[in-house]
Amino acid sequence: MTVLDPVLDALARYDGALASVDADRAVDLVEGLLDDGVDPVTVLVDVIASAQRTVGDRWQRGEWTVAEEHAATAVSVSATEAVARHVRRTPATRGRVVVACAEREWHALPAMIVGTALRANGWDITLLGASTPPVRLSQYLHDLGPDATAVSCSVLGALPTTRRFIEASTAAGIPVVVGGSAFGPDDHRAKALGATAWASGAREAVAAVRSLPTVVPAADPVNGSAAAEQAAMELAHHRLVTSLRERWSLAAQIVTTERLPLDSVHSVAADVVNQALHAVWAALLTDDPRALSHTAAWVADLLAARAVEPTLVGELGRLLARDLRDYPLARALVEHHWTATTGSR
């Protein structure tokens, strides 16, 4: 038996607790691991976060509904809170870190996991929760004077507000660590937005915070023309979404999702339109066209799992490029990096 076997066994049992929406069982399991001396960060990363990624994959493949995904996430929140109670038994011996989700980022669990991992390593943590407005962050920075800011962002549509977080923090001389799936597989987007450091996960965030400089300069401006187009697109977002939903075959005539069943193909299609436009924002702000190609691949997988004709991904890209005729940089990005992934131009 290897040293990892107890954790792998715990992961399997934890996954069962998520599937049965048994918060008591999940909490008992993680508390048992902690009482047995398993490192809290191992519990957070190799059990809770690992199982939660599987939950997302199941929704992506159409195996779980939105309701099942949300219920499982609530169980993981309870389990993370149990780890947080455990690590708070020991005094904080380092400085203070403010941990927040960018505005429009409603997935609070990753930030909770990172904050708890930092607390386990001796940092005093102030966790601001989901979708924190930049003005609220600025107030906390002023009131608390933390040593660092950690920002979680998993959705591309929150990258513009993440940039505002970075501006607020670095303007006060406070270094910023960013992470989350919206940043992609490396530090390119984080650097483009002016972050001090990027972390691919909770363990990496702990290491990054430990290595931060004491004081940093204000973040450099982002590309002016690209930022201007992104801001203009953001203001026109409702009009662009409505146009795409009316003309894309999969979402035709859907202008509002209020009455759509959460797990219907049309509801998924309505969300895809938003994600496609957010991918353009991200590509503009970070000069990273992978935001588009990765989103197109994600859409293709999402629709394939629901038996939707794959050529509709290419159709969405062509319609998107057409609707962005007033945004030349954005249109060029879509023409070169969306349809190339889907194989239909």
Rank of each mutant, 00 (worst) to 15 (best):
S200W: 07
P213V: 10
P185T: 02
T162K: 03
L159C: 08
V178E: 08
D186C: 05
W198T: 06
R136I: 06
R136P: 00
P160M: 00
V209M: 06
L128G: 10
E167A: 14
A171P: 04
S131A: 15
G179R: 10
W123M: 07
T132N: 03
G201Y: 01
G194M: 07
V177S: 12
A202D: 10
V135C: 05
P221T: 09
R203Y: 14
G201F: 00
G145T: 14
A158W: 01
A218P: 11
A148D: 02
G122Q: 08
G201C: 08
R163V: 01
A202I: 10
V215R: 15
L193R: 02
A219S: 14
W123V: 12
R136G: 08
W198R: 14
P175K: 11
T149H: 11
S152G: 01
R164D: 13
I166D: 01
S200H: 14
T126V: 14
S131K: 09
T149D: 09
G194T: 04
S169C: 06
L159R: 00
V222T: 14
D186V: 14
A202R: 13
A150N: 01
G122T: 07
P221A: 00
V177M: 06
H188W: 11
L159E: 00
T149N: 10
V222E: 01
L193M: 02
V216H: 09
A199M: 11
A227D: 10
L193W: 03
V135I: 12
G145P: 06
S181F: 10
P213E: 07
V135N: 10
D187P: 14
V215F: 04
P146F: 11
N223A: 11
L193I: 11
Q139E: 15
K191L: 09
A208Q: 13
S225K: 15
L127F: 13
G184S: 03
I125P: 04
D220T: 12
G122N: 11
S181E: 06
T170N: 10
A195F: 13
S200V: 12
D124F: 03
P217K: 07
T161C: 00
G179S: 12
A208H: 09
G129K: 00
H142G: 08
